[in-house]
Computed example of a mutant assay.
Amino acid sequence: MVYWNLFLGFFRIGLLGYGGGPTMIPLVHAEAVQKYQWMTDDEFTDVLAMGNALPGPIATKMAGYIGYKVKGYLGAFIAIAAMVIPVLVGMILLLGLIYKLKDSGIVGGMTHGIQPVIGVMMAVMAYDFFKKAWQSWVKSKTLAWTLISIIALVLLNLNPGLLIGIALAYAFTESTYLANKKKRNQQQRDADRGFSA
């Protein structure tokens, strides 16, 4: 049953994920977190961050990871195949039709009509991520990284992958420092207890 759910969930994403890549992320969240509860919001955020930091299409990386987490290698294969099949079949069947209609108002109207919906889906997800970061992390750091992101992405037109890599390196460095500091403090307390005994 789990294999079938993996196939159905990612098949729906592949079928409805108009625009590919980043536009599929809210659909992946809806299936993996909300519907099937294969992972928590925090796990999804981590997977999204790592997927963005690695090269290649984000949707298939997430499908592979989630499938592997749920049912190992076969789960990863099923999730990736289910996501790719609708796109592949659609491209093969519709390529000729789309090519004939590329200059018509029908295709342009469809494209313009779906863009606001995708924009709202992305905005809702971005708000949810910001809210979670605001609640779970130091608020000044959340504001600082939000400002850094806006400046880097909007004003400096920095590659998002590079920015994510920088943020991951910072988070790794800070968490390693804090973990080592905590360990040293614990060792010092243990040594003080041993000395006083």
Rank of each mutant, 00 (worst) to 15 (best):
P55S: 09
T45N: 09
A53Y: 10
G14H: 07
G20E: 10
A79Y: 05
V89H: 04
V84I: 15
I106F: 05
I25W: 02
G67R: 08
Y18L: 15
A79F: 09
M24Y: 01
G105H: 07
A82F: 06
L93R: 07
A76M: 15
L27P: 01
V87N: 10
G113D: 03
A81N: 06
S104I: 00
G67D: 09
G67Q: 04
S104F: 02
A53T: 12
F44N: 02
P86F: 10
T60L: 04
I78T: 11
P22Q: 13
Y18T: 06
V87W: 01
I114L: 13
V87I: 12
M83C: 05
L94T: 00
A32K: 04
L95G: 12
V28P: 01
I114Q: 09
D46R: 14
M24S: 11
K35H: 15
D41I: 13
G109V: 00
Y73T: 14
A59D: 03
A49W: 01
M39C: 13
G20H: 09
G75Y: 02
K102E: 03
L15A: 12
S104P: 02
G90D: 00
L88W: 09
V84Y: 03
G19V: 05
D103L: 05
L74K: 14
G96C: 05
L54F: 10
G14Q: 04
K102C: 00
I98S: 00
D41K: 12
L54H: 07
G72Q: 11
K61G: 03
G51H: 10
M91F: 12
M62D: 06
H112Y: 10
H29F: 15
Y65D: 07
F44L: 07
I85L: 15
I78P: 06
I80M: 15
K69P: 02
K61S: 08
D103A: 06
Y73Q: 14
K35D: 13
A59E: 08
